[in-house]
Write a protein that binds this DNA or RNA. Sequence first.
DNA 1: GTTATTGCAAACCATTTGCAAGTGT
DNA 2: ACACTTGCAAATGGTTTGCAATAAC
Lengths: 158, 158
Amino acid sequence: MGELSPIDKFREFLQTKGERLTRERSIIIEEVFAEHEHFDADTLVSRVSSNKSGRRVSRATVYRALKLLEEAGLLRKVARPNGSEVYEHDYGYPQHDHLICSKCGDLIEFTNEVISAIVEKICAENSFIKSGHRLEVYGVCAKCNAPPQRRHRKLDLV
Amino acid sequence: MGELSPIDKFREFLQTKGERLTRERSIIIEEVFAEHEHFDADTLVSRVSSNKSGRRVSRATVYRALKLLEEAGLLRKVARPNGSEVYEHDYGYPQHDHLICSKCGDLIEFTNEVISAIVEKICAENSFIKSGHRLEVYGVCAKCNAPPQRRHRKLDLV
DNA sequence: GTTATTGCAAACCATTTGCAAGTGT
DNA sequence: ACACTTGCAAATGGTTTGCAATAAC
């Protein structure tokens, strides 16, 4: 069985709900899956506004589509580095968690099977039916934590 | 060295910032530490409004105080079961994480040292200076997942 | 043709903020 | 006295929604 492409998965999802794959939704999903990186609603709104097709998609429609994409299992919210939620692909990508830099806002992904296993065990012990988890580690990334770098380092050589 | 009470810890914190322990802040911290349970800003607002002393504390002041209590290390945000953030005591309580029931909104605490250890290791590997973490497990708790209980079970015995 | 979807602008909701009056040290 | 804090009401900012026009099936 070949894996469905995101858009086909979405089409399938919409069909089971009696909803429609509109031009706007196609544009949105195309932008969302153009690259595998984290994004927030606002960023997506500007990306679909400057869309090559010249067609604009309203903010409201983007928000409505994001909700559907989450429901469909194509996206998931993973963090809120600066207040607003950040999404990432949740279709065809392995489970992972994030280190969140409080200075630059960067998300660093990591995977760890042991954590997942422990979470499973804890759920079992509590008769808790897990649907997912989110592990966010806060702190400062290596880059931001580097010693105050000499500015204009090249000048030292002059 | 005896542990400071929350209010003493707060007083100390305020002093180092050149800020004051006002009546309003005292009322708030008393309410916050009256019992060890999760709460959100809105709940706290109503609790300090129906305060026994008859004195009201405004919503703005509660929000300002919550921010200070977090800064002081007395409170931490732990989850957002229904959108709004939930606080809990973070002074004198051991590190733990939560199972979050999507039906009843309950938070079930659990502790696991292995998870903390793994998180430490991952941070080290990434030269990430950790300040804290938050592990939220989503799903349905045992209570909500129970088979639709016969209503009025006692009637069976009649 | 019927029903879902869009864009707009207004509504929402939690949280934050400016400011004048009040309070802690 | 002085600087910090309060309450109020208005502002904010991200997200949602009612509705008439429009598009998918």
